[in-house]
Amino acid sequence: MEKIVKLASENGILIFSKSTCCLCYAVQILFKELRVQPRIVEIDTIPDGVEIEKALKRLGSSCPLPSVFIGGKLVGSTNEVISLHLSGNLVQLLRQLAV
Rank of each mutant, 00 (worst) to 15 (best):
M1L: 13
E2R: 04
E2A: 11
K3D: 10
K3C: 03
K3N: 11
V5P: 00
K6G: 02
L7M: 14
A8Y: 00
A8P: 00
S9K: 14
E10T: 01
E10C: 04
E10A: 09
E10N: 06
N11M: 07
I13P: 03
I13H: 05
L14K: 05
I15T: 03
I15E: 05
I15N: 06
I15Y: 02
F16H: 03
K18H: 09
C21E: 04
C22Q: 11
L23T: 08
L23E: 03
L23R: 08
C24S: 06
C24M: 01
Y25L: 13
A26M: 12
V27K: 01
V27Y: 03
Q28G: 11
Q28W: 03
L30E: 05
L30G: 02
F31K: 02
E33N: 13
L34Q: 06
R35L: 05
V36I: 08
V36W: 11
Q37Y: 12
Q37V: 09
P38D: 08
P38F: 03
R39G: 08
R39Y: 09
I40P: 13
I40L: 06
V41M: 01
E42F: 07
I43D: 00
I43G: 02
D44R: 01
I46L: 14
P47Q: 07
G49H: 02
V50N: 12
E51S: 15
E51R: 06
I52T: 10
I52V: 14
I52D: 04
E53C: 05
K54G: 12
L56T: 06
L56C: 05
K57S: 09
L59F: 14
L59I: 09
L59Q: 11
G60D: 04
G60W: 07
S61W: 08
S61G: 10
S61I: 03
S62F: 13
S62D: 08
C63S: 15
C63R: 15
C63L: 14
P64A: 13
P64G: 10
L65H: 00
L65I: 12
L65A: 02
L65C: 02
P66D: 01
S67D: 06
S67M: 06
F69N: 02
I70D: 03
I70R: 02
G71H: 01
G71I: 05
L74N: 03
L74A: 10
V75T: 02
S77C: 07
T78I: 12
T78Y: 15
T78A: 13
T78Q: 14
T78K: 15
T78F: 15
T78E: 13
N79I: 11
N79L: 15
E80M: 14
E80S: 13
V81I: 12
V81A: 10
V81Y: 07
V81Q: 10
I82G: 07
I82N: 05
I82L: 15
S83F: 11
S83L: 15
L84S: 10
L84A: 10
L84W: 12
L86K: 08
S87V: 02
S87Q: 12
G88R: 01
G88Y: 04
G88N: 03
N89V: 01
N89A: 07
L93Q: 06
L94Y: 04
L94I: 10
L94W: 05
L94S: 04
R95Y: 02
Q96P: 01
L97C: 01
A98T: 15
V99L: 15
V99K: 15
